[in-house]
């Protein structure tokens, strides 16, 4: 496998793995929570590093995923006090945790190579250098396997718990009444999101994980009304963005992750304008058509009223004369 192919493979896997839980984030109106989590996992990684002093230890991944769930919990606890709005709670929690992470890194980890830039901005181009070697045989880049496992987890979780995820996104109270604890499903989903973020940030950087998680689902949201199709379409759109983004980056020789995010924006823009039913053009056209129909209807009403009046013509004219003479 050539490095170029490996990079694209990793990117596609990451894109699909991100877009699946992203669908539920969008439907639950929690898109900005992904932004929050992508920032705070840095603290989890730093704390994990202090415990193990080993950058490749799985504890780091665990710590990061745990920190994602803690972020969600903190944000919700804060907004449950009803002393502030939910969006404000998000905006308070993540900068604090992120600041602590940055401070810890600059103060104590300066001697070690824990680069904030690579965490935040990611570098997919280096992924193929880290090889997976089993029994002396090179079986491909390590990232293919880590992100592959992630994708497997997400796909399995969504297939197994599809019904529960669907109902709790649509109507949490009904789902509680039917015996599916919304809290359990919620934190399950959030664990999925954190794990995915952790797995993905190494490849694309934490800020752009947001583009991967939210971009394809909201693009798909404009194309379909069925949850199943939305999941499928998101995965497809995510994969397409990844490949096109990589090609563009290779052509212009710029940041791969950034280019994929831009591609996400472009596909969204195209769909936003031209989507068959929910797009900008068709909405405008429908509105104009509606206006025309109104005009026709109004005209019909007038004719109808006129006809009705003819019968009462004599009466009406008598009334009219009376009022005028007053």
């Amino acid at each position: 496998m050539s490095p170029q192919f490996e990079i694209q493979l990793i990117a596609v896997i990451v894109a699909v793995a991100c877009s699946l839980p992203g669908v539920f984030l969008v439907l639950r109106k929690m898109s900005m929570m992904s932004d929050s989590i992508t920032h705070t996992i840095l603290l989890g990684i730093v704390l994990g590093f202090f415990m193990t002093h080993n950058l490749s230890s799985p504890i780091l991944i665990l710590g990061a995923a745990l920190m994602g769930v803690i972020t969600v919990w903190l944000t919700e606890t804060l907004s449950r006090t009803r002393l502030l709005a939910e969006d404000a709670a998000i905006g308070i929690v993540f900068p604090l945790l992120f600041s602590i992470a940055i401070i810890l890194i600059t103060r104590y980890a300066g001697s070690v190579h824990l680069d904030t830039d690579s965490v935040l901005l990611g570098e997919l181009a280096f992924a193929p250098f880290d090889r997976m070697i089993i029994g002396g045989v090179d079986i491909g880049a390590k990232a293919i396997y880590t992100t592959g496992i992630l994708l497997l987890i997400n796909v399995t979780a969504i297939i197994v718990f599809f019904k529960e995820l669907e109902i709790s996104a649509f109507d949490p109270i009904l789902s509680a009444l039917l015996g599916f604890s919304p809290a359990l499903i919620h934190y399950g989903l959030m664990t999925c999101v954190s794990l995915t973020t952790v797995g993905a940030f190494q490849a694309v950087g934490s800020i752009l994980v947001v583009a991967f998680m939210i971009g394809p689902p909201i693009t798909a949201y404009l194309l379909t009304d069925s949850l199943k199709y939305m999941l499928l379409l998101s995965a497809l759109i995510g994969a397409a963005n990844a490949i096109l983004g990589y090609q563009a980056a290779a052509f212009f020789d710029v940041s791969i992750a950034g280019s994929m995010a831009v591609m996400t924006g472009l596909t969204f823009l195209l769909v936003f304008i031209f989507a068959p039913h929910h797009g900008f053009v068709s909405t405008l056209r429908r509105r104009n058509q509606l206006k025309l129909e109104f005009a026709k209807m109004t005209f019909l009403f007038h004719i109808y009223n006129q006809e009705g009046n003819e019968r009462n013509d004599c009466k009406a004219s008598v009334d009219e004369i009376q009022t005028h003479s007053h």
């Binding site: 932004d35 901005l121 800020i207 752009l208 947001v210 583009a211 939210i214 971009g215 940041s255 992750a257 950034g258 280019s259 994929m260 995010a261 831009v262 996400t264 924006g265 969204f268």
Partner: peptide
């Protein structure tokens, strides 16, 4: 995220 990506 798209704007930030463009920035990068």
């Amino acid at each position: 995220s798209v704007f930030f990506g463009l920035g990068l």
